[in-house]
Design a binder for these strands. Structure first.
Length: 454
RNA sequence: UCCCCGAUAGCUCAAUCGGCAGAGCGAAUGACUGUUAAUCAUUAGGUUGCAAGUUCAAGUCUUGCUCGGGGAGCCA
């Protein structure tokens, strides 16, 4: 007997006789002579209603079938005489595959808080909201690859383990096989200190300067003790890198990319998205449409400071050229002033890492951040320093070890080209597109300080 | 890491001045019904996060710890 997924059955135009579904019971409504089951198999948000009459041979099996149990049901798909659904499965056979004790099964038919569900991360994808999130996450991942493939980019698998102890992006996790970590790193597995990557950028630049247009998309690790709803110790980042591209090309790519992902989900994941439109953020659909319809603003840092100074707002942290912008400043720009996504670019070089290209003014580098209303920084990127002497001077000035970057420097020695790239935090994008306010709720098993369950 | 708030039944919460541990939902049982977050009735369900202290008496006050939430810093 052919197994059908619930998604297909709910969207079909024809009746099916003699099919089978497999899934988990969301609820059971019992009568004396028949029972209704709501069965979800994860293929889509909606459940398939099953009606089982007491006359079927296997009706006894239903006694132990409760919320949470897994079942295999054979029957005929027929038009539902009841209200609320077009189709239902008239069961000819019901088999319980796995029992779920209703006294202890933690998911009830009612709404749960995100905090509670986070404590049962192994079961939360059986809820409507979380199954929707993780289907959207899967589809968005696919869209990332499709976007880049359509415009001729190649996917590069940059390493997870790295030997450079300062990639300029926060604290790193040490990787070791040594029992005694006080021993010299030369005795360790790699013969030197090893870490989990904080960015694939330095590696992927090499492939941009050979394959031309590339990206990497993989896990990224930050050991920073950040306790906020926007930070995780392990997250996924998308980092495109483009040869023969300047900072303006870079911003255009980021804008096209963000819009493509949103449009893809609007086109392909309507049903799951609507859950978030209806129950998570009533204004979400408008926000997404607004982003799609907007030309993202682009202003230089210098300009942004002037806007902030002239705003008349009372900021907790005063602004002036040379200081990094605070959350309150970013929010003012994106939410109050522009009311749409805004790129801020050409930052003072004193607050940015060594690899960013220095501008002719001697004060700024070709860095850019994309600020989104209500989300903050979604993208950070730059044009890279492609002049060997300038790069070497910058490495030295920041007190880094030139020896560690010899291969990175050689990229500038042999056939150097202007090139640019950025990093987009995949979870932050998902937060934006779903309205979910905690990063721990858009990643299957969150890794955060003092939290390594599951 | 810093600031603020919180932790009571499986879940969400209440408990007045320090004085008998409560409700809704969920669950079990029964009734009823082409039902649909079904409905109605009954029942069970507690080391009040952990450790100490003050007190005749602590869910309530004090101290420490753990965990969670919000904000900040850092960032994606």
């Amino acid at each position: 007997m052919e197994r059908k997924r619930v998604k297909e059955l709910l969207h079909t135009d024809e009746q099916f006789a003699g099919i089978k579904i497999q899934g988990w019971v969301r609820s059971k409504r019992e009568s004396k002579t028949f029972s209704f089951l709501e069965v979800n198999d994860g293929s889509c948000l909606k459940n398939l209603q099953v009606i089982a009459d007491e006359t079927i041979e296997t009706y006894e099996a239903l006694k132990d079938v409760n919320t949470g149990a897994s079942v295999e049901i054979e029957g005929d798909l027929v038009e539902s005489p009841g209200k609320g659904q077009k189709w239902e499965l008239k069961a000819t056979s019901v088999k319980m595959v796995g029992y779920a004790d209703p006294e202890t099964y933690p998911l009830q038919k009612k709404r749960h808080t995100d905090e509670f569900l986070r404590q049962i991360s192994h079961l939360r994808p059986r809820s409507n909201k979380y199954s929707a999130i993780f289907r959207l996450r899967s589809e968005a991942s696919f869209a990332v690859h499709q976007f880049f493939r359509e415009i001729g980019f190649f996917y590069v698998h940059t390493p997870i383990v790295t030997g450079s102890d300062c990639e300029g992006a926060g604290q790193m996790f040490r990787v070791t096989t040594m029992e005694d970590t006080t021993k010299p790193a030369a005795e360790d597995f790699f013969g030197k200190a090893a870490y989990l990557t904080v960015s694939g950028q330095l590696n992927v630049e090499n492939y941009a300067c050979s394959l031309g247009n590339v990206y990497t998309f993989g896990p990224t690790f930050r050991a920073e003790n950040s306790n906020t709803p926007r930070h995780a110790a392990e997250f996924w980042m998308i980092e495109p890198e483009v040869a023969f591209a300047d900072i303006h090309d870079n911003m255009s790519l980021a804008e096209d990319f963000v819009k493509y992902l949103i449009q893809f989900l609007m086109d392909n994941c309507r049903e799951d998205l609507e859950l978030f439109f209806n129950f998570v953020d009533k204004g979400l659909e408008e926000k997404l449409k607004h982003v799609l319809a907007s030309d993202f603003a682009r202003i230089e840092y210098r300009e942004a400071i002037k806007i902030l100074e002239a705003s008349g707002e009372k900021f907790e942290y005063p602004v002036s050229f040379g200081v990094d912008m605070q959350t309150e400043h970013e929010r003012y720009l994106a939410e109050q002033y522009f009311k749409k996504p805004v790129f801020v670019y050409n930052y003072p070089k004193t607050i940015k890492p060594f690899y960013m290209r220095q501008n002719d003014d001697g004060e700024t580098v070709a860095a850019m951040d994309l600020l989104l209303p209500h989300v903050g920084e979604l993208v950070g990127g730059s044009q890279r320093e492609d002049r060997l002497d300038v790069l070497e001077a910058a490495i030295e000035k920041m007190g880094l070890d030139m020896e560690e970057y010899w291969w990175y420097a050689e990229l500038r020695k042999y056939g150097s080209v202007p090139h640019s790239g950025f990093g987009l935090g995949f979870e932050r994008f998902l937060m934006f597109v779903t309205g979910v306010s905690n990063i721990r709720d858009v990643i299957p098993f969150a890794r955060t300080p003092k939290n390594l369950d599951f």
